[in-house]
Design a protein around this nucleic acid. Structure first.
Lengths: 199, 199
DNA sequence: AAAGTTTTTGACCGTTTGGTCAGAAACTAG
DNA sequence: CTAGTTTCTGACCAAACGGTCAAAAACTTT
């Protein structure tokens, strides 16, 4: 060992995540990051690499948290369909709050910003968004297993519809933060899953 | 009159639109615009103003075209619901084509990029996205009048669901250009409108 | 042909960008 | 205490950024 690092790695990543989340990849400058974290460029580059590498670490960790983990911790013993309903409810209620709810989702934001490009970064972002989708796939599969969703459901397609609804709710909140309207998206998706439950 | 301008105003706006569409507002540089149009900065600024003003002209014109105009011209005598179905079909089929279909929609892209900010530009973008939504509102209203959609429909909510589906199809094509999956979004929205028609 | 007006041109400006690096500082091991 | 290793600091860099402007060019009018 030599000189120990003075910052908390996890906390710094959280700060970095906030910046990219609020401003997007391109619009976030290194100065934004240095002033948000207190680190200077040298430390940043020694720990992470360049701007793209910093972004990757933040996005990977963001997606790694998963959309349902927190809900399951806060309210245990929910069936999988209720977890989905509660996620929608959370996204919708947050959408009204100016800065927190209208940031969208870091993964979706990134997918929209760079997903269509043919860069390494684009491939990485798409992979992370796919990971996010797989959480929905798991959840819908579980809901079928729990018999809270019909067994005849095409899980892949159903999961994608649920995923797409989350996408629309989160991202449309950026320019249309109207809870009643966003709830339409959630409830329409829930109906398409063959359940009577609503948000 | 004095020295006449050497460029075609409309053509230049189209070129500018392409650039912003492909790269986004922030990521588009003036150099990108000058090399795409052949104009230099001086001419650009004399004709339009600054970068933001250039962008506004492009976006306003883009939205002004409307999503249904072209479809109605190409295939006349369609009922309003068929216009919607054909729009979805077009968006879905284009989503496979690499650069054209995966650009998303200029208005949606812009809404996601700057819609949540508290800037003048953000307000303008949101206004333009609202204009886009109003096209869907008109269309759904017409479809009800034509009795191809149930009269009991809440037109505002139904229009928003149709709008949200277009948003999801267009923007998710950026990172998930899978026609079968995107069709799920369209058909789920159509079902929620109370019609049997599918894409 | 001269005067007046507008467009075009390209050089120019200050600022911000992502990125680098030598050296000081802070630790551990011997 | 010294040597070795890693982190931290701040100055520094070239390139790209949005934006400006004087002068040349191209037209109309008289």
């Amino acid at each position: 060992m030599a000189r120990p690092r003075e910052f908390d790695y996890d906390q710094v990543i959280l700060k970095i995540t906030e910046v990219f989340w609020a401003k997007g990849f391109k619009a976030t400058s290194l100065d934004n990051i240095t002033s948000a974290t207190g680190l200077n460029k040298g430390s940043l580059y020694a720990s992470f690499g360049n701007k793209e590498a910093i972004f990757r670490v933040a996005l990977r960790r963001y997606v790694g948290e998963g959309p349902f983990k927190k809900i399951r911790e806060e309210v245990p013993h929910l069936d999988s369909l209720d977890v989905l309903v509660r996620l929608y409810a959370k996204l919708i209620s947050e959408a009204g709050v100016s800065k927190l709810g209208r940031r969208g989702c870091l993964a979706f934001n990134s997918g929209v910003e760079v997903g269509h490009q043919n860069t390494k970064l684009s491939q990485f972002v798409v992979k992370e968004v796919d990971r996010l989708e797989s959480f929905f796939h798991e959840l819908i599969g579980e809901a079928v297993d729990e018999s809270v969703l019909p067994r005849k459901l095409d899980v892949k397609k159903a999961a994608f519809r649920a995923f797409a609804a989350a996408f629309a709710i989160r991202e449309m909140a950026k320019f249309r933060p109207d809870r009643e309207m966003l709830a339409e998206i959630a409830n329409s998706a829930l109906a398409s899953l063959g359940t009577e439950r609503r948000v």
